[in-house]
């Protein structure tokens, strides 16, 4: 690393594992998990907080990974789509997205999964308008969103059953 780059040592848990790392202070959380931890499931789509591809969960809440500095995760509990996959937290959603083909290029998908999971945690029986509203901060440029809405609706039903 270059000599004149300010860094900070941070300690946190990422996907349940304790992580200690020396991080440039200007590195975004999503760049850090992607390029330093190799967790490339979170994507960088706009870097100005509009597209939602960079979503990660911090202390139980979904945030824009491009609008948080990695050093701000010091002491936090971070979960990416990889962790949510391993824990099975988004398994039903993933099944429904798969079956309904609710993704094409897949670039937006991890961010949408995390957002949908947060919705279903506090709204177990959302109607389609609520699903659309909850996902209105995530750009999908391939689908017409309808398959996504249907997949989330189906997942909500299965999780209630």
């Amino acid at each position: 690393m270059t000599v004149d780059e300010e860094t900070l040592t941070i300690t946190c848990t990422v996907n349940g594992e304790a992580v200690r790392d020396v991080v440039p202070v200007r590195r975004s959380l999503v760049d850090w998990v992607r390029h330093d931890l190799g967790l490339t499931g979170s994507h960088v789509g706009c870097e100005h907080g509009v597209c939602g591809a960079c979503h990660v969960q911090v202390d139980g809440r979904v945030v824009r990974g491009c609008l948080m500095l990695a050093v701000q995760a010091d002491g936090a509990r971070v979960e990416t789509v990889e962790g949510a996959t391993r824990s099975g937290r988004v398994a039903v959603l993933q099944d429904c997205f798969f079956e309904r083909a609710a993704l094409q290029c897949g670039f937006c998908t991890p961010g949408i999964l995390l957002q949908a999971a947060e919705l279903l945690e506090h709204t177990p029986a959302p109607d389609r308008a609520e699903i659309r509203a909850a996902l209105s901060g995530n750009i999908c440029r391939c689908t017409g969103y309808q398959a996504i809405v249907e997949a989330v609706e189906e997942a909500a039903g299965r999780l209630r059953a």
Partner: peptide, 9 residues
Amino acid sequence: VAHEAVRNR
């Protein structure tokens, strides 16, 4: 105000 992920932060 914005969207949930933004409101969370």
